Amino acid sequence: MSVMSPLPSTSAIQTIQEIPYQLLRQLVADKVTGKLTIQNPFDEFVNWQIYLGNGKIHFANSAAGSIERLNYLLGSHLHQRKITLPPQLTDDYRYLCDLWKQEIFSFQQTRSILTQFTQEALVQILSLPKTTCYLDPKGGLEQLFLNLNLEQVIAPVQHKIRYWWELRSEVNSPFQRPLVEDWNRVQTTLAKAHHQSNGWLKKLHHALESLQCLYGIASQTQLSTLQLAMLLRPLIKTGEITMLPYQEIQTDNRPLVVCINDRPAIQRMVQYTLVANGFKTMALEDPFKALAILLSQQPSLVFMDAQMQDMSGYELCSLCRKTPSLKDLPIIMLTDNDNLIERLRAKLAGASGFLQKPFLPQELLQSIQGQLPARISLEG
């Protein structure tokens, strides 16, 4: 293990490139106070946070995905108390503190829950390779419940850290979303290798169909994220499951139109035309990442190029139609040829409409008007 030089004393946010395990040990040894943010080097949407005070751990959590982690770590407790999580939640620590203030949990129960949240986050953080970290000396918590010793808090989960370290090449985060193209093959493999019951497989199938992240799937199948990752690992290695990145739902009142196309000229024209008519737009090139983003963003309409290298628009459209929350999504297929065969392929894939390239802005708007008549006005 390399020996790091002491960090300079400063009130400004510092950017540090280091292995999180080594960095955290030094910060604790130096009795540092502040908030340490750790980027997941494999997924731009996933960051982790550790709150430090005089070399002690006050709390650790994820910077995103609070709802998924709360459901996973606390779902059974909330269900027993008939508590429903809010639709949006950005501060899980404050939420848990509020439950204590409402006397839903005792002080000791709250400490136990916060310790569990911290340990689970530390498992993910300390199993990451060298990455970018940000230290904010002014970052802190309003109310303190914990003052944990690093060695003592990670001792019970040291084996999980090692397992996750080994899993990183296949599963880089519990926030990843598994994509299954052929459920029958996956079901057969799991049933043979692990003798899973039909009831458990149905729960897994439902969670996979809705493209949930591992936290959500683990909650529904009553497994830990580690157990689930190890169960799916062989299928990921063989390519039967593709792991997609995580992205949270973004809030915007304007209707969203997504264009999945690898041609910049088309993307620019779509964006220029639609933004001028009251839409927000999103340009995507990778069809594998597109499915996860469509699920999280819930757009009003999608333009999908029929001819893409890694996965055709017809294949992607079919996958959308097999996903419950996307089965009614208006999808307009963009194709180079307007003939009976292409129109038939688009129809069989479940496309809502058909538009031949190249097209004029008026034609683009008209194709949307047929799907969303109340959401657009044609202006000269």
Rank of each mutant, 00 (worst) to 15 (best):
Q116D: 12
Q116I: 05
T118V: 03
Q119L: 12
A121L: 00
L122C: 01
V123K: 03
Q124T: 01
Q124W: 07
I125R: 01
S127Q: 03
K130D: 11
L135Y: 04
D136P: 03
K138M: 08
K138Y: 05
G139V: 03
E142Q: 10
E142H: 07
E142I: 07
L144F: 10
L146F: 10
L146M: 10
L146K: 12
N147Y: 08
N147S: 14
L148Y: 14
N149T: 15
E151H: 11
Q152I: 07
V153E: 07
V153Y: 10
I154K: 00
A155W: 09
A155R: 11
A155N: 14
Q158H: 03
H159L: 09
K160G: 01
R162S: 12
Y163H: 13
Y163I: 15
W164C: 02
W165F: 12
S169T: 15
E170S: 11
E170L: 10
N172K: 07
S173Y: 12
S173R: 08
P174M: 04
P174G: 03
Q176Y: 08
Q176F: 09
R177V: 11
L179S: 02
L179V: 02
L179M: 06
E181L: 09
D182S: 13
V186K: 10
V186Y: 10
V186R: 11
V186G: 12
T188H: 15
T188E: 15
T189G: 14
T189M: 15
L190R: 06
L190A: 06
L190S: 08
A191E: 13
K192W: 09
H194S: 07
H194F: 03
H195P: 01
H195N: 06
Q196M: 15
S197A: 07
N198W: 04
N198M: 09
N198E: 13
G199T: 00
W200A: 11
L201R: 05
L201P: 08
L204F: 07
A207M: 02
E209Q: 13
S210Y: 09
L211V: 12
Q212Y: 05
C213Q: 05
L214G: 02
Y215A: 02
I217F: 05
I217V: 11
A218S: 06
A218H: 01
A218K: 01
S219Q: 14
S219Y: 14
Q220L: 13
